[in-house]
Design a protein around this nucleic acid. Structure first.
Lengths: 205, 205
DNA sequence: GTATAATGACTGACTGGTCATTCATTATAC
DNA sequence: GTATAATGAATGACCAGTCAGTCATTATAC
């Protein structure tokens, strides 16, 4: 109807918000493009003016969620001076992000599945690999700085630690999703304090 | 009377094996029951003689994989005396199971997704919740015994530790699946040694 | 040992339905 | 009048689950 739409980016974002909600509720395969269109206040056909196909829509939804998480982490880190405190803040911010924006969880699970099997595997698999590399590298950098600042053992295997720290956060969110009695914050705190004691000679000996 | 003396259990297992392979390759929604039937050497119609519907097939596939994992864990534990060594053996056995039977990974990811969104959520959600509770309880029991044997601090929060240990294994397997350069065994070893140092006064002080 | 009857595992064409994607048409703004 | 956004009916492909019929195998009678 409206020629020269006011703002293409705004419309894409509007559709993306609807996509997050529907994909989180119904899954990737289960979601109907028409439902996303309705929620965005458009018709099915219009979706295809802004996105090539359903997969592109899914990718955009996940990307939006990922950026939000990364932004929250960086914001929390900016408030701390020492690398160790920044790491703790990032971990806490991640858990908080999951709790305050719970749609992240089912959306992520759907994305994992899409990246691991079926036609979507190739397209989304590299996206996941890149994302985890990025998260691990963030943690590795903090741990290295922590070593320089004397909060982390010089001989700690920072790569391995980064992998299981990120892994632990994912897994805690997963268990919390299936069973709300599992407290992800308690788990993350325990993980951090154990790491603090287990990989820090300076403060113990 | 009964032609080919059909061994119902054997047939179900034969179909189950095919189901694991196809679901791991194509995902739950993406898999065609006809493909599973072909791989099992049967026709589509016959599948429904042994399973109520596609979901039942999926459930059976996951259950088989879960039992195998649990069996491997218990076997590894049986070879150790002290609770701490049993825990370490179980963790290593889990990682080894993932590596030697890699189809577990995409199948698990599919199951997570099915348990988190869409029509399948209710049916599979409780299965997941129960499974994680079972795994956590196994770890909790070992940690408690470890406390009794003096290998684990008396004031350690065993519930929180169990949650993040299980979480870490899931997450490591996930990262390894997307990026084979991530070594899950190195991650798991680091996690264990950190826990050993961080939650054990006895051996350090 | 042979012929016949009974059985039920197995098949695959079929039904009913879903849904992503396309495109001819309509509405709107300038 | 023209360019473009938006629409939604139409298309085509896919697939879970059903069921009437087939036929190899077993049981029984003699």
């Amino acid at each position: 109807m409206a020629p020269r739409v006011a703002d293409v980016d705004a419309r894409r974002e509007q559709i993306g918000r609807a996509a997050i909600e529907i994909f989180a509720r119904d899954g990737f395969q289960g979601a109907a493009v028409g439902d996303i269109a309705s929620l965005a206040g458009l018709s099915k056909g219009s979706i295809y003016r802004y996105f090539d196909d359903k997969e592109a829509l899914f990718h955009a939804a996940f990307e939006a969620v990922r950026m939000r998480l990364l932004r929250d982490c960086r914001a929390a880190m900016a408030e701390q001076d020492r690398a160790w405190d920044q790491l703790a803040a990032a971990v806490t911010a991640t858990v908080e992000a999951f709790r305050s924006y719970i749609a992240i969880v089912p959306l992520t699970l759907e994305f994992w599945a899409a990246a691991s099997a079926g036609d979507t595997r190739q397209r989304f698999g590299t996206v996941m690999a890149d994302m985890y590399r990025e998260f691990r590298e963030l943690v590795i950098a903090l741990l290295r700085q922590g070593q320089a600042e004397g909060d982390v053992d010089a001989d700690a295997d920072v790569e391995a630690i980064a992998a299981w720290l990120v892994a632990g956060l994912d897994g805690l969110m997963l268990q919390h999703w299936f069973d709300p009695a599992v407290d992800p914050l308690a788990g993350a705190s325990s993980m951090l304090s154990t790491l603090r004691k287990g990989a820090t000679n300076a403060s113990q000996i």
